[in-house]
C-alpha cells in the first residue's frame, strides 16, 4: 500500500502564553510539535504498512522549520517526507491549504490511502481533510475510529458519530480523517531518530507543483481574519473549602442555592 499522511506542525498549546500588554500570542520559546491528532494518522499509516507492506509518505505545508515535524514522522517510521513551503502560501485559509495539499497528493500519485488527523489543535477547524477529499474526488470517512478490514481494494472503517459507531465501506483510494481511538502512537526509536536525521527530504515550493497562482495564499483564501480578541477566561467564582462536616453542609447549601438560582436544579434541590 502506498499511504500519504498529511500532517501539520502546531505550537505546543500548553505552552502558549499571552503578552499581557500587547495582547498577542508569545511565540518565542514555544515549542512546535506534530499536531497531536496527526500522530494517530501517522501510527495508522505505519501499522497498515507493517501489515500489508508498502510505504508511508508524510507531507506537510508550512514554514521551513516544519522540517522538524517531518523528521519526527520519519523517526516514527514514515519512509519519506515532503515539505511544501514558500512565501506564496502565506495567509492560506483552509480552502487555499486544501488546494495546495490536494495538488501535492496528486503529484505524489499512485497512492491507495490518504490519512490526516481529524483537526489540528491550533486552527481547530477540521476542514482541510474533507476539503482535500472533495478536491481529489476521493471517498471520505471523517472521525474514523477504527479500520475493520481491507480487502479487494475496499476498506471498511468505523467512524465515531453522535449516535455510535457507523460502519462504512469505501473503495480505495480513499481519504480518512482519524480520531484518537484508532491507534496508540509509538515513540520514535533511537535508530529511527538516527535514520530520520540523515534522510533526505523533498522540498517543494509553488513552482514544484501544478498550481493556479490565484488560488494560493491570501489571494486564494475566501476568509479574512478581521479582529483578534483575547477573551478573559477567568471567572471570579465562589470557592468553598470543605474540611469537616460543618463546612460540607455549608458548601452544599451554597451550591444548591447557586444551582437553583441558575435554574439548573429546582428550588428544593430536587431535580
Amino acid at each position: 500500500m502506498k499511504i500519504i499522511v498529511m500532517i501539520k506542525q502546531v505550537p505546543e498549546t500548553s505552552e502558549v502564553k499571552m503578552d499581557e500588554h500587547s495582547g498577542t500570542m508569545v511565540r518565542e520559546g514555544v515549542e512546535s510539535i506534530i499536531n497531536p491528532l496527526d500522530l494517530y494518522a501517522i501510527e495508522t499509516g505505519i501499522k497498515l504498512k507493517e501489515e500489508y507492506g508498502g510505504q508511508v509518505i508524510a507531507i506537510t505545508m508550512g514554514p521551513p522549520k516544519a522540517e522538524k515535524a517531518l523528521r519526527e514522522a520519519l523517526a516514527m517510521g514514515c519512509d519519506e517526507g515532503v515539505l511544501i513551503s514558500g512565501k506564496e502560501f502565506a495567509g492560506s485559509d483552509t480552502v487555499a491549504t486544501a488546494y495546495v495539499l490536494a495538488q501535492a497528493v496528486k503529484a505524489v500519485g499512485g497512492y491507495d490511502l490518504v490519512l490526516a488527523g481529524e483537526r489540528a489543535t491550533d486552527g481547530d477547524t477540521g476542514q482541510v481533510g474533507p476539503g482535500v477529499a472533495a478536491l481529489l474526488n476521493l471517498p471520505l470517512s471523517t472521525y474514523t475510529s477504527g479500520i475493520v478490514n481491507i480487502d479487494n481494494n475496499k476498506i471498511t472503517v468505523e467512524r465515531l458519530i453522535e449516535e455510535g459507531y457507523e460502519v462504512l465501506e469505501l473503495p480505495l483510494p480513499a481519504l480518512l480523517t482519524v480520531v484518537k481511538e484508532i491507534s496508540f502512537p509509538r515513540l520514535p526509536t533511537l535508530r529511527g531518530k538516527q535514520r530520520a536525521k540523515k534522510q533526505e527530504l523533498q522540498f517543494w515550493t509553488g513552482k514544484s507543483l501544478d498550481l493556479d497562482i490565484g488560488k494560493l495564499g491570501l489571494k486564494g483564501s475566501p476568509t479574512r481574519v478581521v479582529k483578534i480578541e483575547h477573551p478573559k477566561v477567568l471567572r471570579q467564582g465562589k470557592i468553598c473549602r470543605v474540611t469537616d462536616e460543618e463546612t460540607l453542609v455549608e458548601a452544599l447549601d451554597s451550591l444548591e442555592k447557586f444551582l437553583s438560582e441558575k435554574k439548573l436544579i429546582a428550588k428544593e434541590g430536587k431535580v
Partner: peptide, 16 residues
C-alpha cells in the same frame, strides 16, 4: 475561538 480557546477571532468572507 482558536488556539485552544486562547484567542477569539472574528472572520469575514468579503468576496465569496
Amino acid at each position: 475561538p482558536a488556539i485552544g480557546g486562547n484567542i477569539l477571532a472574528t472572520i469575514k468572507t468579503p468576496h465569496h
